[in-house]
Amino acid sequence: MQNSHSGVNQLGGVFVNGRPLPDSTRQKIVELAHSGARPCDISRILQVSNGCVSKILGRYYETGSIRPRAIGGSKPRVATPEVVSKIAQYKRECPSIFAWEIRDRLLSEGVCTNDNIPSVSSINRVLRNLASEKQQMGADGMYDKLRMLNGQTGSWGTRPGWYPGTSVPGQPTQDGCQQQEGGGENTNSISSNGEDSDEAQMRLQLKRKLQRNRTSFTQEQIEALEKEFERTHYPDVFARERLAAKIDLPEARIQVWFSNRRAKWRREEKLRNQRRQASNTPSHIPISSSFSTSVYQPIPQPTTPVSSFTSGSMLGRTDTALTNTYSALPPMPSFTMANNLPMQPPVPSQTSSYSCMLPTSPSVNGRSYDTYTPPHMQTHMNSQPMGTSGTTSTGLISPGVSVPVQVPGSEPDMSQYWPRLQ
């Protein structure tokens, strides 16, 4: 039975679970980093996980050691009161100082060594604690504590007292930064006198190289990059290397530039699409467009005044059976039934097929058609009795279509119309 579990990581490298990497692998990681390889490249070359490479390099940059820390136990506290007071002093002298600059000053002034120097995250935590204590304490208590930490007896009751030896409130920041720059020169002199001055200088240079600022491109470089971006948004590694040799930039910087440029292009394309949609959409909808001609068919113009009344309900007709019959029939052209047409008796099958359309009241044959006459024609229609054979009435077949029909004066039988409509 094995005491430890061995495995293979996602890159194909072998590791022992819970145990640190061998010293030979750690040394190779540092050597590759000094030669300029990126952590992701080191991870692929040595088949070590990216997190492990970053952790080893980060500890090497901070402490200069590649040895693993002790497994188990607690780390001794490195942010001692003396170190905290120095950090507060540096922050007062130059409020814009960075944590890694404070760390360098602690090393250069001999406050800490490589073994007990606090990390950048520890210094940031100390600065946050100082800021929170400043908010919790009152103004007087804060000034007393700062005077105690600074070891001075001057008056701290006013704002300019934060910067000793100065009279203009805006000047101390520059003086403090100048003092810090002077301390940086002392850093070089002190570290050069040490035993491991060369190694420390190499480590600091490598650290500065990794902690780079934003790349500033010249106009020629920007023009070359934009020209390549117009050709393709995704250049391959050969195109990037050719462009890197042409404009004297690292291939990694060119790759990052193209990634950022593609993101910018997507944002601009989104804005262009929004403007295009806004320009195509009308600002207001016309009133006429809300009524579609496919839904509402136009009603033909009436030929006679009587045809303006298109349904039985508008003429005072309360018989719903006839109203439904007229509205359900398709529109037909106007025609006239003459008196000489043969009077065919209704076929029983045809009569039964339209039995649902006729009223059940037996008085329908005896009703006159003056009910369908509009009010303004009552006088004219009353002067001509319906009993004469020459009287013409208008029957409504569908809305908007008038059918003048000659009705025999002897017997106005409704059943004569249905064979004609089939």
Rank of each mutant, 00 (worst) to 15 (best):
Q2G: 13
N3F: 12
N3E: 10
N3G: 12
S4P: 14
S4Q: 13
S4T: 12
S4Y: 12
S4W: 10
H5P: 12
S6D: 07
G7S: 15
V8F: 08
V8A: 03
V8K: 07
Q10W: 04
L11A: 06
L11Q: 08
L11P: 02
L11I: 06
G13H: 02
G13A: 03
V14G: 06
V14C: 07
F15T: 02
V16C: 12
V16P: 05
N17F: 15
G18C: 02
G18K: 05
R19L: 05
R19G: 02
R19V: 06
R19I: 05
P20F: 03
L21R: 01
L21C: 01
L21H: 05
L21Q: 02
P22W: 01
P22A: 06
D23R: 08
D23S: 06
S24Q: 13
S24K: 11
S24G: 10
T25S: 06
R26A: 01
R26C: 02
Q27I: 11
K28T: 07
V30T: 05
V30P: 02
E31Q: 13
E31V: 10
A33E: 05
A33C: 07
H34P: 03
H34S: 11
H34L: 14
S35Y: 11
S35V: 13
S35M: 13
S35T: 14
G36W: 01
A37E: 08
A37P: 01
R38C: 04
P39I: 11
P39K: 14
C40R: 06
C40D: 00
D41K: 06
I42M: 01
I42C: 03
I42H: 01
S43R: 00
S43T: 04
R44Y: 07
R44N: 07
R44H: 07
R44T: 05
I45V: 11
I45W: 08
L46I: 07
L46S: 01
L46M: 08
L46G: 02
L46A: 04
L46K: 01
Q47Y: 07
Q47L: 14
V48M: 06
V48C: 07
V48F: 04
S49H: 00
S49Y: 02
N50F: 15
N50K: 15
N50S: 15
N50D: 04
N50T: 08
C52K: 00
V53E: 00
V53D: 00
V53Q: 00
I56G: 04
I56Q: 01
L57W: 01
L57G: 04
L57S: 03
G58V: 07
G58D: 10
R59D: 05
Y61E: 04
E62V: 10
E62H: 09
T63R: 04
T63I: 02
G64R: 04
I66Q: 02
I66M: 06
R67F: 07
R67D: 06
R67K: 15
R67A: 15
P68R: 02
P68K: 04
R69S: 06
R69M: 11
R69W: 06
R69P: 01
A70S: 10
A70P: 14
I71G: 10
I71Y: 08
G72L: 03
G72N: 04
G73S: 03
G73Y: 02
G73E: 01
G73A: 03
G73M: 02
G73V: 02
K75F: 03
K75V: 05
P76R: 07
R77M: 04
R77W: 05
R77L: 04
V78Q: 01
A79Y: 02
T80E: 02
E82F: 12
E82L: 14
E82C: 09
V84I: 09
V84G: 03
S85D: 09
S85W: 09
K86W: 08
K86T: 09
I87P: 01
I87W: 05
I87Q: 00
I87T: 08
I87N: 01
A88W: 15
Q89A: 08
Q89E: 09
Q89F: 13
R92L: 08
E93C: 09
E93N: 12
C94S: 13
P95H: 09
I97R: 15
I97A: 13
F98H: 09
F98V: 07
A99R: 06
A99V: 02
W100L: 06
W100M: 06
R103M: 04
R103I: 04
R103Y: 05
R103D: 04
D104L: 14
R105F: 09
R105G: 12
R105Y: 09
R105V: 07
R105E: 08
L106N: 00
L106E: 03
L106H: 00
L106F: 05
L107S: 13
L107H: 15
L107D: 09
S108K: 11
E109I: 09
E109A: 12
E109M: 14
E109P: 05
G110L: 12
G110S: 09
V111R: 10
C112Y: 03
C112S: 11
C112K: 05
N114L: 10
D115R: 13
D115E: 12
N116H: 12
I117D: 08
I117N: 15
I117E: 07
P118D: 02
S119Y: 15
S119K: 04
S121T: 04
S121P: 06
I123W: 02
I123G: 00
N124V: 01
R125L: 05
L127H: 15
L127V: 14
R128N: 00
R128T: 02
L130I: 10
A131P: 08
A131F: 12
S132K: 15
E133N: 13
E133H: 11
K134N: 08
Q135M: 11
Q135S: 12
Q135A: 15
Q135I: 11
Q136H: 11
G138M: 12
G138N: 14
G138D: 13
G138F: 14
G138Q: 14
A139D: 12
A139H: 12
A139I: 15
D140H: 09
G141M: 13
G141I: 13
Y143N: 11
D144N: 10
K145A: 14
K145I: 13
K145T: 10
L146D: 14
R147C: 14
R147E: 13
M148H: 15
M148C: 10
M148L: 10
L149V: 13
L149G: 13
N150R: 11
